[in-house]
Design a protein around this nucleic acid. Structure first.
Length: 701
DNA sequence: GCTTATAACGTTTTT
DNA sequence: CGTTATAAGC
């Protein structure tokens, strides 16, 4: 049907892209430099396989690293051949693992059933904390976070645990998860690997199911993921990646996978180095920089047909305030001529460097967002409501029961919970059922009975509810959360209510996206939510300046990029000096930063900077020398926009007011402090601090 | 159980 | 310096 569109798309590819797309048989590694049409090549190939080679979509596996990327790939393939790709397996590694384990977890023979629950990092940490407490382990000597890291490292083959105490916690953690039918994020990958490795039947099933496997961002795969790919033993394994953009070593990404794949699979290599993003001045700097890495597998020299463009700008500021002021000035200059706020990104090596910029942008009324922060699904109230739902769906879940049995407070303390847990463990029943057997004081017994009634009533109501969206209201009121928050009038309570209401959107969509009865639909929604993170939301189109770490903007592009704080010890980070490999990783991070820029690149550093309350003299980053071409300096200027329309809006805000923002839409005022107001917008934008007299906000009448 | 003083600490973090 | 985790106090 859409053949013409696909034909047109293929005709527009360059030679190497086309070669990759129509590649017939055998493993292929597409080494795709930044901005060389990596995703386009991958999606066009999927469309080509289905449409031209008559490959059954159900037998194609496409794996990426973020939900956002998976969605994007589905969307783009969809655009080329709708609706034939519907059955294709287009997932993140974790979502793929989840799907496999949902069908086969029982075959692990570890005691897992196929309907286990996925827990997030916070939950995993809570379980470890609990074990540490119960085993009387000194949390100072063994911080839970460290133990979690050790466990994760052993699971993903990074490093084995060599401490007996940590080993003991790990063993108990593993048993606890199985007992509670829980899996953490690592487990989704690790158990999938185990399953494929140890179970011939399951392995063969997936080996024969997939005729084609495609992997995106291959340079970020870790050891376990590589093993999974190897175990699937597919002769049409097609991987796309850029070794020069491998920046997740600290999470286990293995640079050597790139070479291993070529060697062990005997893969053909196609290099894409025609860049469709940046001017050549920017690319020259990038090429020059990355040549300093000795461990490169494939030499690429990015070239575009966009001409040289303007020279990159390297600026040395006297101190951190001067740096911020210079960048702010330049943004004001740029936006009063050719550029919009959305065209601009300020990138840094680590999060805390955002602070001064945030402050300055607020003062000068430059709209911005900061990437990262607390995720919507990590918020306490959201997790609480979902925990109620999980207990309702499965009363055997002691883990979630413990979370909510006294939330909101109903006089059930730790002593009661421990007694229940002990009895339940001893008699091999759930804590929920144990409520009927353990003797408590009249008051406690009453509270427990009340809790049990709440769960039972919620269950009845949820089963009867016609539309899923109403379930959130049922939970909110039925759990007592509503009553609890009603008493509180402060801004936090208001924010919590809003967040809970925001959950409705997710359930509204679940109603038509999923099939089955309510409980079945809920289980599918919970699966999706378990793997969803804040990074999946699309901030790209907001007309605001983006403040982000380099890691957070991988894969994105901006017309103008400022890379700041290019100083020795910050970028490269001082932890990377010892190890030449780590210094190369830092260089790749800077390479990623540079290659985000399409038209203008600014690199700044300062002589003096306040670090942890002390002024430090910094020397310029070694990377600056390495990119040196033509450079110019920004001449510091006064703010060209006379501290912008002072008091243009005379609105007087108070908490609870509904306001409308040009970019963020409707929001509720949460706090007013001097001339700064805090506004809660829709979840996708979150909580923002803005100047009261900013022209972009208006009170809704 | 919840709020306030003090200490401790301080890369990147796709799921 | 600013934030967050922990402990002591109400």
């Amino acid at each position: 049907m859409n053949d013409k569109k696909l034909d047109y798309e293929i005709s527009r590819l360059n030679n190497n892209q086309r070669k990759a797309v129509i590649h017939e048989n055998g493993p292929l590694f597409v080494v795709a430099g930044a901005g060389t049409g990596k995703t386009k090549t991958l999606t066009t190939r999927i469309a080509y396989l289905i449409e031209k080679m008559n490959v059954d979509p159900n037998r194609i596996l496409g794996v990426t690293f973020t939900n956002k990327a998976a969605k994007e790939i589905r969307h783009r393939v969809n655009d080329l051949i709708y609706p034939n790709q519907m059955g294709a397996w287009l997932y993140t590694f974790h979502a793929f693992g989840l799907r496999v384990l949902r069908e086969n977890a029982v075959n692990l023979n570890l005691g897992y059933k196929n309907d286990f629950t996925v827990i997030d990092e916070d939950d995993a940490l809570a379980i470890i904390r609990d074990i540490i407490k119960k085993q009387n382990i000194d949390a100072k000597k063994y911080p839970p976070r460290m133990i979690k890291n050790f466990i994760s490292n052993e699971k993903t083959f990074i490093r084995n645990i060599d401490d007996e105490v940590v080993r003991d916690v790990y063993d108990r953690y593993k048993l606890e998860l199985i007992k509670e039918q829980l899996m953490d994020f690592d487990d989704l990958i690790v158990y999938t690997n185990k399953l494929f490795k140890e179970n011939l039947l399951v392995r063969t099933k997936y080996q024969t199911l997939f005729t084609h496997i495609l992997i995106d961002e291959f340079q970020d795969t870790d050891k376990v993921q590589y093993e999974i790919i190897k175990l699937l033993n597919n002769e049409n394994t097609f991987v796309v990646g850029d070794p020069d953009q491998s920046i997740y070593a600290f999470r286990g990404a293995r640079y050597e996978n790139n070479q291993l794949f070529v060697k062990e699979f005997g893969a053909e290599v196609i290099v894409l180095d025609e860049n469709y993003r940046s001017t050549n001045n920017i690319l020259k700097a990038a090429n020059k920089l990355i040549k300093n890495n000795n461990s490169r597998t494939t030499d690429k020299n990015l070239v575009s047909s966009f001409g040289d463009g303007v020279p990159i700008v390297v600026h040395l500021a006297s101190d951190d305030f001067d740096e911020v002021r210079t960048v702010t000035n330049e943004i004001i200059n740029l936006t009063s001529h050719k550029y919009n706020y959305e065209d601009i990104a300020v990138l840094y090596r680590n999060n805390h460097l955002s602070r001064l910029f945030e402050h300055s942008f607020m003062q000068t009324q430059i709209p911005y967002i900061i990437y990262g922060g607390i995720s919507f699904y990590e918020r306490k109230e959201v997790k609480d409501i979902l925990a109620y739902l999980k207990v309702v769906v499965d009363t055997n879940s002691n883990f979630y029961l413990k979370r909510i049995i006294n939330t909101p407070t109903r006089g059930i303390g730790n002593v009661t919970i421990n007694k229940l847990e002990e009895y339940a463990n001893f008699n091999n029943m759930s804590m929920f059922d144990a409520i009927d057997y353990v003797k408590f004081s009249a008051k406690t017994a009453n509270s427990l009975k009340e809790f049990k009634n709440i769960i039972n009533e919620l269950k009845e109501k949820i089963e009867e509810t016609k539309e899923l969206v109403n379930i959130i209201d049922v939970l909110f009121v039925g759990s007592g959360y509503y009553e609890f928050l009603k008493e509180e009038t402060d801004d936090k309570a208001k924010e919590r209510k809003e967040n809970i209401m925001e959950l409705k959107n997710v359930f509204r969509q679940g109603d038509w996206n999923y099939e089955g009865n309510n409980i079945e639909k809920i289980k599918q929604i919970l699966d999706e939510l378990a793997l969803y993170t804040d990074h999946d939301k699309d901030n790209q189109d907001l007309n605001v300046v983006k403040l982000a770490t380099v890691h957070q903007v991988k894969g994105l592009e901006f017309k103008v990029v400022f890379v700041v704080a290019l100083e020795d010890g910050l970028f490269p980070s001082d932890r990377s000096y010892m190890d030449p490999f780590e210094l190369e990783e830092e260089r790749r991070i800077f390479y990623v930063a540079i290659t985000r820029a399409k038209e203008r690149l600014y690199v700044t550093n300062t002589q003096r900077r306040m670090v942890y309350g002390q002024i430090k003299n910094n020397i310029p980053s070694v990377f600056l020398r390495e990119i040196k071409n033509d450079e110019e300096k920004i001449l510091p200027k006064k703010y060209s926009r006379e501290t912008i329309n002072k008091n243009t809006s005379s609105d007087d805000f108070k908490s609870g007011d509904i306001v409308v923002h040009d970019s963020f839409g409707k929001g509720v005022v949460v706090e007013v402090k001097d001339d700064i107001i805090t506004i809660a917008f829709n979840v996708e934008y979150g909580i923002k601090k803005l100047l009261k007299n900013h022209p972009s906000i208006k009170k809704e009448i």
